[in-house]
Design a protein around this nucleic acid. Structure first.
Length: 736
DNA sequence: TTTAGTTGAATAAAG
DNA sequence: TTCAACTAAA
């Protein structure tokens, strides 16, 4: 309340705020409150618009920071947004809720755990925890894991939750779907019995249901969050979409930024259709476009535009730049993946040596992780530092998860998953037999393993050695959470690590791996210290341990950073989204690899592959180099591939084939030109072009078919949706 | 309980 | 080919 007043002085003059924006950005930032959907092309200043919008609301609209909710997908994006808004308006951003969908849902559930039907100290399951729990559930039901793979069940459950469906809402149509439904039910029951375990999908669904079923609460938050900002809207799944609509009600100002052409997460539930759905569900939505690109050369943009124009069902957008044409796009047809790596690395070397590029200016982007290998070996061989993104993150490491399982057990004895994880880690003589006895007792009495252990001990049902070890374990946990337990988080964790034997266990291991793990455990203690210091005391009622455990699940930490600050960057296309590099090598452009074979049969999935390629191309600022290998070793077997269709879809005039300097014995492949997409008759309309119709208003050309007087054009109108029109009668006028 | 050997799967991955 | 998960032997 009083917080904002003292900080107002830090706010810069509002005229400065929009001075640095172009006309389209300014129009978006200053759009009147209501429903706004900004179609923000790659490199068009999307984050700028979002952060300036927030600043604008605070200044020109005199909105209170308290009334703003901003949602992103990643912690990184949330942190960046927070930082940039703070930079624009001073620290007045303090009262805003800025976070990921999951982080915000979690916050609401923590505040209203009772209404949400959760225990106060409910724990979050990450993907691995969830799979383990499913596996345990299967064993309890004596279901064959090879016939019902846990991964598949996990996928099923999460997909249903992403759609907002509980087991009761399913309509099984065969034995398989009926069994899946049963397993979904059993899993839900296991989560409940485990003392309120909440997986990632559950956070969202549970929060949605909370708001849905508590009208007073919903009303409260609707009144509070007058302004909602959404980033990367094309990545929302069904439940996120419904959650946003519910929270927004009909009154809130909703400002959404997204790009349907960069939707690459359909496989994890994202629904690009939400972009169209929004316009249907909220007809008052004002659609604005950011099409001026500040990142890439004209050549690179032309290639990107041409490629993405082949997709249907686009909202339509045409990126342009005031910048120079730049270098042509190089294509290298490699003989093998080693040859490909050699070419790329040699190029990087010469860019660094003769053109003054830094190593970190160069990125190698590939479709699948396995492809990094050849590049790593070559870079390593030439002693060029590099950094590979992806892989295990800090809180996902086994030793860290072991430690966290001990901590969870302190908070909740009935957390069977954690119990099983640590009962014999480090080894303390409790083997399968003892564990089996505990499990069957627990199943019989419908209790947790912890309770079952107590019962069996009291009944004297365990053999001497097992009984001693189990008693010691139970006493250990009780002692660690007892009245003498250290109150300060970091110190407490230190005590736990020392007492439970994990520290000693890894200290015995003198190998590099053991040293690594020991280091990580120490790192955990300092992570806790940092966390405790950064935590706002008023955050919520949760104690610091519970809060830290949630933090560990929600923010699994940075992907392991290579030691090199200035190294060549290697990553998948997916993880490159949102980044940019002066030089991009897009490698492995082969049919079956990219587009991936798994995506070949379905047109929708193929289009997602094409968008992925579009994302890759638009990462490049100055130079783009493409390559493919004619022979590639996959899973120990040689494959002879052909150039990716995406290569052939690029306008030939933008592309220059690089020839090997020495003649390598290899079959010559040509990058053939592909037939033009639009025939001469229909060329008047290019895909993605904006046109005006006398009655339907403005729209975007989605596709053309037929020729001459029969030409039919599909146009997606901003207000009337998509329609097929006969070009000869429609009298469509191109829009400037 | 630990280990060596076997089997099977292998697209992308935030929270 | 590689890696994780599992099984059988010590």
């Amino acid at each position: 309340m009083g917080a904002a007043s003292g900080m107002e002085s830090a706010i810069v003059d509002s005229s400065n705020l929009i001075d640095s924006l172009n006309a389209a950005q300014r129009e978006a930032v200053t759009a009147p409150c209501g429903r706004t959907l900004v179609l923000a092309g790659a490199g068009s200043g999307k984050t700028r618009v979002l952060t300036h919008r927030a600043a604008w609301l605070l200044q020109a609209e005199e909105a209170s920071a308290y009334s703003i909710l901003a949602v992103t997908f990643t912690n990184k994006a949330a942190a960046e947004m927070r930082g940039r808004i703070a930079g624009l308006v001073g620290i007045a951003a303090g009262g805003m809720w800025i976070g990921t969908f999951h982080g915000l849902a979690h916050r609401l559930l923590r505040l209203h755990w009772r209404e949400a039907g959760l225990p106060q100290h409910f724990q979050i399951l990450d993907a691995e925890d969830q799979r383990r729990l499913i596996r345990r559930t299967l064993r309890n039901l004596e279901i064959d894991e090879s016939r019902w793979p846990p991964r598949q069940i996990q996928g099923f459950i999460n997909a249903r939750k992403d759609e907002g469906r509980r087991p009761e809402a399913l309509e099984p149509h065969d034995a398989y779907s009926e069994q899946m439904r049963q397993l979904y039910r059993a899993y839900e029951e296991a989560c409940r019995a485990g003392g309120g375990l909440v997986d990632f999908a559950e956070l969202l669904l549970r929060c949605y249901e909370l708001l849905r079923h508590q009208p007073a609460l919903l009303e409260h938050y609707r009144r509070r969050f007058r302004h909602i900002l959404v980033d990367e809207f094309q990545d929302t799944n069904r439940i996120q979409y419904e959650w946003l609509r519910l929270l927004a009600g009909s009154e809130s100002d909703v400002f959404i930024v997204g790009d349907d052409d960069q939707s690459i997460y359909g496989w994890r539930g994202a629904q690009v259709e939400n972009m169209q759905r929004l316009q249907r569900d909220e007809p008052s939505t004002r659609v604005l476009r950011l099409e001026q690109n500040y990142r890439s050369t004209r050549t690179i943009l032309a290639a990107a535009n041409a490629l993405i124009a082949r997709n249907s069902r686009r909202l339509g957008k045409h990126l342009w730049t005031e910048g120079a044409a730049g270098e042509p796009i190089a294509v290298y047809a490699a003989f093998s993946e080693q040859d490909e790596a050699r070419f790329v690395v040699e190029r990087i070397r010469s860019l660094i040596e003769s053109e003054g590029y830094a190593r970190s200016d160069c990125a190698i982007l590939y479709r699948s992780n396995a492809q990094s290998r050849a590049f790593e070996e070559t870079l390593f061989g030439r002693e060029i530092p590099y950094r590979v993104y992806g892989g295990l993150r800090f809180f996902e490491r086994a030793e860290i998860k072991d430690a966290l399982a001990y901590l969870r057990l302190l908070v909740n004895r009935n957390d069977d998953a954690s119990f099983e994880r640590v009962i014999n880690t480090p080894p303390r003589g409790i083997g399968v037999k003892t564990l089996d006895a505990l499990r069957s007792q627990a199943r019989q009495r419908q209790t947790s393993l912890w309770q079952a252990a107590g019962e069996l001990l009291r009944a004297g049902a365990l053999s001497g050695r097992a009984a001693r070890a189990t008693t010691a374990f139970i006493e250990l946990i009780d002692r660690l959470s007892g009245p003498l337990a250290e109150p300060a988080l970091a110190a407490r964790i230190e005590v736990v690590l020392a007492q439970c034997g994990l520290h000693e266990h890894y200290a015995k291991d003198r190998s590099e791996r053991g040293l690594d793990r020991l280091e990580n455990l120490d790192e955990l203690i300092s992570a806790a210290r940092t966390f405790e210091q950064a935590r706002e005391p008023t955050d919520d009622e949760a104690d610091s341990l519970t809060a830290f455990l949630a933090h560990a699940a929600l923010e699994a930490g940075e992907v392991q950073a290579g030691e090199q600050d200035d190294g060549v960057q290697l990553m998948t296309l997916h993880s490159a989204k949102g980044l940019e590099f002066p030089v991009v090598f897009l490698v492995g452009l082969e049919e079956g690899l990219f587009p991936h074979r798994m995506a070949l049969d379905e047109p929708g999935r193929l289009e997602e592959e094409r968008r992925l390629c579009y994302v890759g191309i638009t990462r490049a600022r100055q130079r783009l180099l493409l390559s493919f290998a004619e022979r590639r070793r996959l899973h120990g077997q040689d494959h002879y591939g052909t150039a990716s269709r995406f290569l052939l879809e690029l306008p030939t005039e933008l592309v220059q084939e690089v020839r090997a300097r020495f003649s390598v014995t290899r079959p010559q492949t040509k990058v053939h030109a592909v037939e033009p997409m639009v025939t001469a008759d229909t060329a008047a309309f290019s895909l993605g072009q904006r046109v005006r119709h006398a009655t339907f208003g403005e729209g975007i050309v989605l596709s053309c078919e037929g020729s001459g007087p029969n030409t039919r054009v599909q146009v997606n109108f901003a207000h009337s949706g998509s329609k097929w029109l006969v070009a000869a009668y429609a009298n469509l006028k191109p829009c400037p």
